[in-house]
Design a protein around this nucleic acid. Structure first.
Length: 509
RNA sequence: GGCGACGUAGCUCAGUCGGUUAGAGCGAGGGAUUCAUAAGCCCUAGGUCACUGGUUCGAGUCCAGUCGUCGCUACCA
């Protein structure tokens, strides 16, 4: 139905700490979106990666007695291990220390330099190694950076290269006006528009004091400022500048998914960089919310980190992915609570969808010897499914993941009601109701199958298991296959183990 | 200080262009069943839709102000 391409990226992660549930949230939602686009039939490229430069990383490496390269290798393993556990199906994983990335950085800098957008100036001030940035006096709290109270500030004076960001102010304002969906959600756009009204300052894009980074092509004494460097991964990841054909086939990105704290870099600096370099701008940037632990921000120093690996061990990737999508309004913060995760896993998945599958198959075996009956498909469930697909598509296209899950689950809810309304065990005792029983059984099984297609992007493994249990095409279904009537008559099904075993709720703490 | 949100049943939230008795899920209480992972289904919550005033035939839904929470930003010359 669609042969559109869809290029989606997540922010690349700093490798100075291990991924936590908040980091995972971004990758999970990106993966769900990517899988949804594949379900729609789009040609999808999903890029993730690690951000390996910066003084901070170098210091972390030295502290462990490692060269930065070796340290980053280890961190790549640490990250990708978690992504694998969470079923994140990215197409490529870029690292900013890779040659392809460095070439892109050099090329982009050369271009904006040639375009007259880079100039030299001295910069002097308090530098926070935590932020990798100079701080204004006014930002300091008791002489320290409010975001990194544990770190000493350094008074630095160095020659910097500056990017003429100020030149792009009007361009950006116009672009925001022209492209309504360029920045979402609305809250973030408002913030940035306000910032644009206040005027943009040129930004420093190089560091003399650091060595672990990409050399500035026109100044061997300096390396590129880590943020400026990092953004460029999005074009490097699709072949720029060396593989023009590949680049053309994917760029511009259709969606940059980033945390709400870094929308500014992606919505202001990045577009200006691209414009200056003569490259097309991304189509959309979405600033998602944070996963908070209760009311607290998830933070390493506060000890409020939730480890995704431990959660996967207990709940499985699918339940966690389902929880993250179903519970959060995409774009806003989510208050994480393990009790809520357990409730979701039990009530929606074990009691709702999993139990529906069990009872449907069980009745089929009991009343029809396990053979899927042939029945007309113009029933109430068909209408419910059709509507669910429509709602699902609308929600997912708008990046309303919660709405998408709700639409899919409406099929399950309807089917569970149907069981009680029709009471198959009563129909089974009355031979004159045989056709009706056939129809009901088919409706229940079909509802499971349809739901599995819609929920596939959210729970790839379990939904595949579900389709396997129904002996239908398990791999890479298309959205249109969710339509009612896909289950072949005559297939014989067998009893299955619970798809989602119930989980004991966590102890009160 | 400026800008922008948010404030709806115990909890988490939906509520499109303003229109009859304000919704869902979870939790809790009750009921009728038995196919199922003791799951599912049905009924029940009587909530000043933060507060006040305004526009309107009519406002949770628009406007102004107040209070509270939060985000961004500025400044304390």
């Amino acid at each position: 139905m669609s042969d559109a391409k869809f290029y989606i990226t997540t922010a690349i992660d700093y490798v100075n700490s291990r991924p936590h549930l908040g980091t995972a949230y971004e990758k999970v939602t990106a993966d769900v979106i990517a899988r949804y686009r594949r379900l729609r039939g789009d040609r999808v490229f999903f890029l993730m990666g690690n951000d390996e430069h910066s003084l901070k990383v170098e210091q972390a490496a030295r502290q462990q007695g490692l060269e930065p390269e070796a340290y980053c290798d280890r961190m790549e393993e640490a990250f990708t291990e978690v992504w694998k556990l969470l079923d994140i199906d990215y197409d490529d994983f870029i690292r900013t220390s890779q040659e392809r990335h460095k070439r892109a950085v050099a090329e982009l800098l050369t271009r904006i330099h040639a375009n007259g957008d880079v100039y030299q100036a001295d910069y002097e001030g308090w530098y926070c190694n935590g932020c990798e940035a100079f701080k204004n006096e006014g930002d300091l709290v008791e002489g320290r950076c409010p975001d990194h109270v544990g770190l000493e500030l350094a008074w630095l004076k160095e020659k910097n290269h500056f990017f003429r960001l100020s030149r792009y102010q009007d361009f950006l304002v116009e672009h925001y006006a022209k492209e309504a969906d360029f920045v979402r959600p609305e809250v973030r756009k408002n913030e940035l528009l306000e910032l644009l009204r206040g005027g943009l300052k040129d930004i420093s894009i190089s560091r003399e004091s650091a060595s672990w980074g990409v050399p500035v092509p026109f100044d061997p004494d300096a390396v590129v400022y880590v943020w400026f460097d990092a953004l460029i991964n999005y074009v490097a990841g699709v072949g720029w500048p060396d593989d023009e054909a590949r680049f053309q086939s994917w760029w511009p990105a259709d969606l940059h998914l980033v945390g709400k704290d870094i929308t500014r870099f992606h919505c202001i600096i990045w577009p200006a960089m691209l414009k200056s370099a003569g490259l097309p701008l991304p189509r959309a940037i979405f600033g998602h919310g944070f996963v908070n632990l209760g009311k607290d921000r998830m933070s390493k120093s506060l000890g409020t980190i939730v480890d995704p690996k431990a959660l996967v061990a207990r709940y499985g990737a699918d339940a966690i992915r389902f929880y993250l999508c179903a519970e959060a309004t995409f774009g806003r913060d989510l208050e994480y609570g393990e009790d809520r995760l357990a409730i979701r896993a039990n009530s929606d998945l074990a009691n709702g969808l999993g139990n529906l599958l069990s009872r449907a198959i069980s009745m089929l075996i009991k009343y029809r010897d396990g053979v899927v009956p042939a029945v007309p498909t113009d029933c109430a469930s068909a209408a419910v499914t059709a509507r669910a697909i429509e709602d699902y598509r609308r929600a997912m296209d708008a990046l309303d993941l919660k709405g998408g899950v709700e639409a899919a689950m409406s099929i399950v809810i309807h089917a569970n009601k149907l069981v009680d309304d029709e009471a198959p065990w009563a129909l089974a005792k009355d031979p004159s109701q045989a056709e009706r029983l056939d129809r009901v059984l088919y409706e229940l099984l079909e509802s499971c199958r349809a739901a599995s297609v819609l929920l596939g992007p959210v729970m790839p493994t379990k939904m595949r298991d579900l389709r396997l249990a129904l002996r239908c095409e398990a791999e890479a279904p298309r959205l249109e296959q969710a339509a009612f009537g896909g289950l072949a008559a005559g297939t014989r099904l067998e009893k299955i183990a619970p798809l989602f075993p119930r989980i004991d709720p966590p102890e009160e703490s």
